[in-house]
Write a protein that binds this DNA or RNA. Structure first.
Length: 426
RNA sequence: GGAGACGUAUCGAAGUGGUCAUAACGGGGCUGACUCGAAAUCAGUUAGGGAGCAAUCCCCCGCGGGUUCGAAUCCCGCCGUCUCCGCCA
């Protein structure tokens, strides 16, 4: 959400930004919202005047009653009664207009960073850098679930019976590996100065509507029956929720948090649940990082955040690359976003394992996350990034560390979390 | 789940239909005076949102409604906290 004052003063910049994102259908909204906003302020002014008048007269009535001049009091009461209908009408109009303005403002995209490449959709995202040699072994790499099944590490059949498609039982060493990665990632981030955090796994509807759009909510969130609670789709939801409607003293920033949580997603629509495998499922676990900082520091944090993910994957001997989201693929709330992709020796291509976003002040404005400092109060900047989401990373892990005999190497960094094992096999 | 109490600024807390919202009273913080410095003392200062060039005005007593000329105060719904009982990892 952008500042309406900015939009008022720089309508052309806002329009230019909309064009860059190939959302030309939103162009008329800019002038429309300027008009509605002007109307809204005018109506508000009128209503304010009436309220001021009412307050004044009410005070007079109070004074008169006190002196026992009941007759006089009753006489001037008339004046308020007379304007009551008009005031009610104005108040209705006031609410109507301001909700219309907010509604439109929610759809106006955040001003993107000048460095964002211009492009229509994800096909035009730009590779930034590769880390590690994409390696293809001279034997055939099986599908990841076959690797797991071969190690007795996954049971889809039982999961389907118990919970349906999109769920899984991880078993034995694979389950242990999954937990090992989470624990390792947690310590990795703690070592880098982040504060570890286990947040609520359910959140109220007012937090849900604060942190996501209605469309997102419908396609992602599971609702608890009979309660005002939703299962989180990512710990970012509860982590950012922690800051809703807060004023944070400058010296408490930056807040750098790393959180663990299971994540629940309906995955309704667009992609759907993957038939075979753990790439896209209803339930997974994730280590996440979020930063709330001063505006001038968000660029710096953005680079630090995605670098953490790259370093983590590299420490597990997985080749990765970074991919900059182009303007058209960038969500409306984001200033900049960068995907970290891991190498798949089987598919001989990279696939998404994490996503790093700088939301600038857009999320903060919407959720009223403010900073108080010597220069007054202003909106914070917020960022988030995946450290690692193990089911998905297991795909990359297993494919890149697979031996020809079906066993899997455990990188040095993970061994302490795997009871010292150097390899897992049958 | 049952019973009761409560929700007002940075904290404690007063206010129970009008002249009480920067909001009594007390504590804390900040600034200044006194001091070689500190403590003590004294003085000042210390919430948010919105409209306006400004003067100024509007909103804000957990949240949302209602009654009233006027609501922190009365009524309804919701949320939260605490205490006791029950139940449970």
């Amino acid at each position: 959400m952008i500042d309406i004052k900015f939009l008022r003063e720089n309508p052309d910049a806002v329009k230019e930004n909309i064009k860059k994102k190939f959302q030309d259908s939103k162009l008329p909204l800019v002038d429309e919202v300027i008009k509605l906003d002007a109307e809204s302020r005018a109506v508000k002014q009128q209503a304010d005047d009436l309220r001021a008048n009412r307050n004044k007269i009410s005070k007079q009535i109070g004074a008169l009653m006190h002196q026992g001049k009941k007759e006089e009091a009753m006489a001037i009461r008339e004046q308020v009664t007379k304007q009551a209908d008009l005031l009610e009408e104005l108040e209705q109009k006031e609410a109507e207009l301001s909700s219309k303005v907010t509604e439109i403002m929610m759809t106006i995209p955040q001003i993107i960073d000048p460095s964002v490449p211009i492009g229509k959709d994800d096909s035009e995202n730009v590779e930034i850098e590769r880390y590690g040699e994409p390696f293809v072994p001279d034997f055939e790499v099986p599908y990841h679930t076959d690797i797991m099944e071969n190690l007795n590490g996954i049971d889809f059949d039982s999961a389907r019976k118990v919970a349906g498609n999109g769920f899984y039982y991880l078993m034995g060493d694979i389950a242990r590996l999954h937990s090992a990665v989470i624990s390792y990632a947690r310590d990795f981030m703690i070592d880098r100065g982040f504060t570890y955090c286990v947040p609520p796994f359910m959140i109220r509807s007012n937090v849900v509507t604060g942190v996501m759009s209605f469309a997102e909510m419908d396609s992602m969130m599971y609702k608890i029956e009979g309660e005002d609670l939703y299962l989180i789709g990512t710990s970012e939801h509860s982590m950012i929720g922690k800051f809703i409607d807060t004023i944070n003293p400058e010296d408490t920033l930056p807040q750098t948090l790393t959180s663990y949580s299971p994540c629940f997603r309906k995955e309704k629509g667009a992609h759907g649940i993957e038939e075979r495998g753990v790439y896209r499922i209803h339930q997974f676990e994730k280590q996440e990082m979020i930063v709330v900082c001063k505006p001038e520091e968000s660029k710096m944090w953005f680079d630090k955040l995605w670098q953490n993910t790259v370093d983590l994957f590299r420490s597990m001997d997985i080749p990765v690359r970074t991919l900059e989201c182009c303007s058209g693929d960038l969500a409306d709330l984001k200033v900049r976003s960068l995907d970290v992709e891991a190498w798949s020796p089987r598919q001989k291509k990279y696939f998404e394992v994490g996503s790093c976003s700088n939301l600038g002040d857009a999320q903060a404005r919407r959720l009223k996350i403010r900073v108080s400092g010597k220069g007054g109060k202003y909106f914070a900047h917020t960022l988030n990034n995946t450290v690692v989401a193990p089911p998905r990373m297991l795909i990359a892990f297993l494919e890149n560390n697979l031996n020809e005999d079906g066993s899997v190497r455990i990188p040095v960094a993970l061994r302490p979390y795997m009871g010292g094992k150097e390899v897992i096999g049958k």
